[in-house]
Amino acid sequence: MPVPENHEFFIDPGRCIGCQACVHACSECDTHRGHSMIHLDFVDRALTTQTVPVICMHCDSPTCAEVCPADAIKRSEDGVVQTARKPRCIACNNCVLACPFGVPKMKADFELMMKCDMCYDRTSVGKKPMCATVCPSGALYFGTRDQIESLRRAATPINQFRFGEQLIHTKVHMMVPKSRGREIVDVAAALFEAPVGQDMSLNILQ
């Protein structure tokens, strides 16, 4: 059963308060029970308390799957990029290094790459992913377009990300200000920017 089309994942890293609820809830997911697939990183502890939760963005043309020498990563028809198929993954680390969002995790003792599959055991039967059910600040939100738009009136979801010359479309959307009128987030441009901590932690108040 596919993930319902009208339900989408919206991320808003600026709202993250670093509570780690998503990290712990993630490990409850049946498809990777006991192993959390969420990355929760501090942006820069010297400058800001800001944390960032990263889930798989489920790219339309997943670089991780394309560079996999074992053809172990498959994207299901509903656009979910599944974790590596266990019989095939040869633990080469290509996907870990190639993902532009830094998502896949290598479980060296299992000789296996594991990654967020949007809690496929839940979303494929109409439930929300574990992380989105427990996130208290709405940094990770799973619902309909109407719901997110009524909750975040100043924001709009976009799903195109630029990395140098490469444009990546994703199934997961990120919330950006509506007033900017942006259609693409230039991620690589942030290489040359300092973290703007105040703005980031203020997002929760909006």
Binding site: P13, G14, F101, V196
Partner: peptide, 21 residues
């Protein structure tokens, strides 16, 4: 992973108030 959030924060800079740290 960090760059994704910094890129988003940069989009919001000046929109929700506050300034660079």
């Amino acid at each position: 992973r960090l760059l994704l959030s910094i890129a988003q924060a940069n989009e919001w800079a000046g929109v929700r108030g506050g300034g660079p740290l």
